[in-house]
Amino acid sequence: MKLNTLLKTAVFAAAAALSLPQTAAAWTPEEPILLRIGFGAGGETDTMGRVLAATIERQTGWDVVVENRPGGGGVAMLSALVAEDPDGLVLGMAVNIPPLMALSQRPDSVPFTLDSFDYIGTVTVAETALIAGSEAAFSSIGELVEFARTEGSAKIAWDAPDAKAILQKIGQKEGVSFRMVKAESGAEMNKLLLGGQVDAAFGTGAHLPFVEEGQMKTIASLSDKRLSSAPDVPTLIESGHDFFIAPYFYIAAPGGLPAEVKTALADAMDKAVADDAVQTVVQNAVSAPALNLGAEGTRKMMHDSLAPVGALFDQ
């Protein structure tokens, strides 16, 4: 064991000895819990993870330490997490789409499967909209297809490969040309749309002020349900295109956790996600409400999402 950990354990043990046990939970960690975030410091996932960790600390009295392990939208972090002991002391926070893409497209390149992990819960699910400038000649996905047909092509900015794949599938099916223009962030998609370089783009929250100000409009929901920001706009599914994107932010642990550990962690997570501090930071970070599917619900969501994500990238 490293000296650092030893020292920390000693300090923690001393502190624990001095304080009375706070709850009668079946399991309490004897060492600090390490929460690894699959993204860099300072980003939205990092901030949500840190607030979640601080909330769990406050509510349970456990010690939760956060560490950043960026790479491939969480794939790098999960690849390392799978090798850790399933003692509940190491957890990981990731977004579901990148590992699902890796598992459906190149399963041999990652050292894990969906069953390599025990799932603790979700923090939120982000919403994706299809947006256009408010002056655009189209206001729905059907009209966008017709626009592309009459103009020869439509230029659409994207930043997530699944969103790109959906529009390409629709273009193929309808026999029209979508010129898909890669952007590095939601902000860059806004810039391309406002600058008139593209006809449509995807919105993941950064577009909302422009919609409010009247410079942009929402033309479709890419989620599996209508958007909390634009409840009148139909989903792609309602418009006859059976595709959706549901990027869940979730917490996982190495597979094979003892049952009481998993229950204790899932309970702690559930209480934390219900807390005001977490609700606020999630709403601010991804413009969508906090949402915990619970341990079993998260496991089911991951398994149910694998086939639809894989289908997007079939040729």
Partner: peptide
């Protein structure tokens, strides 16, 4: 416009958003 010109600026956007303020 809410567009970051550098890594530091991207972090600042994150900070704005955490406070519920969307640069734009």
């Amino acid at each position: 416009l809410g567009i970051p010109g550098s890594v530091g600026a991207a972090l600042l956007i994150g900070a704005f958003k955490i406070h519920g303020i969307q640069p734009g």
